[in-house]
Structure formats: C-alpha cells, structure tokens
Simulated assay, not measured.
Amino acid sequence: MNIYISGLSYGVNNADLTNLFAEFGEVSSAKVILDRETGRSRGFAFVEMSNDTEGQKAIDELNGVEYDSKVISVSVARPREERPSNSRPHGGYNNSRRY
C-alpha cells in the first residue's frame, strides 16, 4: 500500500518516517520529497507498506496527529496524474504576434 503524508516538518527524513510507520508493520520504503534546487524537504513524503491491512491501520492511527511539532495528514496515495503536454514553445519570443 502506498501512503501519502503531508504537513511534515522540514527536519523529518526517510529514517524518521521508516521508524514512525514501522510501529504498524513492515515498511518497504519511505521517501521524503526534496526540492530539486535547494535539496530541502518539500514537507511531504510517500511510504510504502507491504501489507494493506497494516498500511490502513497506520493511516487511521497517524492521520491528524502531531509529529515533530506539526499536525500531519496521512492518506492512501493516489496515482500520479499525467500532465498534458504543452505543444507551445517554451520561453522566448512569441511567434503568434503580428506587427
């Protein structure tokens, strides 16, 4: 089961999440999402648990609780939606203008 966690303190790391969710069962992976440019946490993460029942118990028990001085939201992760491709050229001069 893939789990989405938001509202995380910027100091929380992958090991912290693994330890938190391990109380409910086996954690396959835990990944805090980092900003590409700064390398700093973006305040959300994904945890994968091998057992759906244990994952649901973790969601039920952890959603809305205070963790590292912030109230976190925990839910089932939704599949990533594909962004529509933008066929227009990026940046620069706008070729559609007429003078």
Rank of each mutant, 00 (worst) to 15 (best):
D52Y: 00
R98E: 08
R78G: 01
L62D: 12
R98N: 04
T18S: 14
D68I: 15
M49C: 09
D60Q: 14
R83S: 07
L17F: 12
L20D: 07
A22C: 01
T38R: 01
S41I: 07
R88G: 03
K70W: 02
I5F: 10
E66K: 15
P79L: 04
S75N: 15
P79C: 00
H90W: 02
I5A: 08
Y10C: 04
I72E: 04
V65N: 09
G11N: 11
P89T: 11
G11L: 10
G64K: 13
Y99F: 05
L8N: 13
G43A: 02
A77H: 06
N63Q: 10
D68G: 00
G91L: 05
S75L: 11
D35E: 04
K57R: 13
R97E: 08
G64W: 14
L62H: 15
R98A: 01
A58F: 07
V27W: 02
R78N: 08
L20N: 10
S73P: 00
R42W: 07
E82Q: 06
T53S: 12
E54K: 06
Y99G: 00
N94M: 06
D52W: 00
Y67S: 10
V47D: 02
S50T: 15
S6T: 15
F44I: 13
P84A: 09
L17C: 08
L20C: 11
L20Y: 11
Y4V: 08
L34A: 06
R83N: 06
N19W: 01
Y4N: 10
T18R: 15
P89C: 01
A30S: 13
P84C: 01
E81S: 10
Y93G: 05
R98S: 03
I3C: 06
E81R: 15
R88H: 06
N94V: 03
V76Q: 13
V65L: 12
E54A: 15
R97G: 00
V32D: 06
L34E: 09
V47I: 11
G55K: 08
R42T: 14
D35A: 01
K31C: 07
S73R: 14
S28Y: 09
P84K: 12
A30G: 05
V74Y: 04
I33F: 04
R83P: 00
V76I: 13
E61H: 14
Y99I: 00
L34P: 02
V12Y: 08
N14H: 15
G55C: 05
S96A: 06
F24D: 07
D52A: 13
A45F: 11
E81F: 05
D52E: 13
E54G: 04
F24E: 06
E37I: 03
N95P: 08
M49H: 05
R83K: 14
Y93Q: 12
R83H: 04
V12E: 04
K70N: 13
L8P: 11
S69E: 14
K57L: 13
R36Q: 13
L20R: 12
H90M: 06
S28N: 10
I33W: 04
E54T: 05
K70M: 10
V74T: 02
G25K: 00
V65H: 08
V32L: 02
S6D: 15
I33G: 00
N19Q: 14
V76Y: 04
L34K: 13
R83M: 03
R36M: 07
